[in-house]
Simulated assay, not measured.
Amino acid sequence: MRILIPLFLLFCNLSFAQNQRFSYYYSFVKDTLNKQEVTKELMNLDITKNGSVFYSHDVHVSDSTMTAYYEKQIKTTGSMNVDTKMMSQRKGTVRYRIIKDYPDFKISSLLNIGIDYYKVSDDCKLIWNILPDRQKIGEFNTQKATTEFAGRKWEAWFSSELPFQDGPYKFHGLPGLIIKLQDHTGTHQFELAGISKFADSTDNFSGFAGRNKVIEINRLQYRKLYLEDRNDPAKLIKQAMANGATLKFTDQSGNVIPPAQMIKNKEQGAKAKNAKDNNIIELDLLN
């Protein structure tokens, strides 16, 4: 296992009641027609006594920096001027957060669709088949388990040396932390990279916002919204125009873009993006 973050292996000295951060490398292929292009992102699984939060390290750092920048701007000037250049420099691609509440492992996702933030509850039940296969991954003795989830078959290697029934993304329920996880196509892979402690709480969604309300929905409602946004990205513009709103759009040079052209641009952009984003982690959302 390639390790870029130090692994702290003196587990006899760890107090598992304290906050533990397990960092994973997440490697995934967005376009099945271009499997050579692999996106890699460092993800954190923060575990406390009350539950866990799984999120992108880069997104968290980038958005926290941006939030502080705009909060300072508001405090100094009393207003906020959105800096398009700074917005374009946001890092990270995995913009959701997965929250698991202990002890019953209620799962919810924090994410955005369009201009709104949503908290999506998910009552997914994972049925694991624990196999006799064992191997050592890094410094851990692990055992193999398999399951099916969201349109994919998954293979996990867990270690009972780490007494957490948790793992990356929404995966949980094994008698030990998941060290390595991949789907049957090999296009989505998670592997433990490091362990540390943390003092601050990352329970709250720290994405740059100015958005105060989080809308709570279930997974069926989310799937409907997800497909609508994916297939009709200009829906909000069309609705606003139908309601008589006067809309004005400009490009980065300040040139006015007619609403009809803006709609066309969004639809064409979405079509091109969707063609290269055909391998989402939860495949059944597309069915």
Rank of each mutant, 00 (worst) to 15 (best):
Lys125Tyr: 01
Ser79Tyr: 07
Gln143Asp: 12
Trp154Tyr: 08
Glu41Gln: 11
Lys153His: 13
Ala240Ser: 15
Thr185Lys: 14
Ile115Glu: 00
Asn255Leu: 08
Met80Ile: 06
Ile107Leu: 05
Arg90Met: 09
Thr147Trp: 05
Asp284Ala: 03
Leu192Ala: 14
Gly269Phe: 02
Lys30Thr: 08
Lys40Met: 07
His57Pro: 01
Leu4Gln: 02
Glu282Pro: 01
Lys91Trp: 08
Ile115Trp: 00
Glu41Tyr: 08
Ile215Cys: 06
Met80Glu: 14
Thr147Glu: 03
Lys91Ala: 15
Lys180Cys: 10
Pro132Arg: 10
Arg134Asn: 09
Val256Gly: 01
Asp251Arg: 03
Leu283Asp: 01
Gln36Ala: 13
Ala209Pro: 09
Gln89His: 15
Tyr118Lys: 00
Arg134Lys: 15
Pro132Thr: 11
Arg230His: 13
Gln135Phe: 05
Arg21Val: 15
Ala234Arg: 07
Tyr117His: 11
Ala272Arg: 10
Lys238Asn: 13
Lys136Trp: 07
Asp229Glu: 12
Asp104His: 09
Trp128Lys: 13
Ala272Thr: 12
Ile74His: 10
Met66Tyr: 12
Ile98Trp: 02
Phe16Ala: 10
Phe149Met: 03
Asp116Gln: 09
Gly254Asn: 03
Gln73Glu: 14
Thr84Ala: 12
Gln239Phe: 05
Glu161Asp: 12
Asn274Cys: 06
His184Ile: 07
Leu285Ser: 00
Gln252Ile: 05
Gly78Val: 04
Pro259His: 00
Glu282Ser: 03
Val256Ser: 08
Asp277Arg: 12
Tyr96Cys: 00
Arg90Asn: 08
Leu181Arg: 04
Asp232Tyr: 06
Ile237Phe: 00
Glu41Leu: 09
Leu225Glu: 06
Leu10His: 13
Ile178Glu: 03
Glu161Ser: 07
Pro132Lys: 10
Gln143Met: 11
Gly51Thr: 09
Lys49Ala: 13
Ala275Gly: 13
Ser160Phe: 08
His172Glu: 02
Tyr226Cys: 00
Val61Trp: 01
Ser253Glu: 15
Thr93Met: 13
Thr67Asp: 10
Ala270Cys: 07
Asn81Asp: 11
Pro258Asp: 06
Thr65Lys: 09
Glu191Ile: 05
Thr185Met: 07
Tyr222Val: 01
Tyr96Ile: 08
Ala275Gln: 15
Trp157His: 14
Met66Val: 09
Tyr102Glu: 04
Ala245Ser: 14
Gly210Ile: 06
Cys12Trp: 05
Asn212Glu: 08
Glu71Phe: 13
Ile257Asp: 03
Ala145Trp: 01
Ala260Tyr: 08
Asn34Gln: 13
Gly254Arg: 02
Asn255Trp: 10
Glu148Met: 02
Ser52Leu: 11
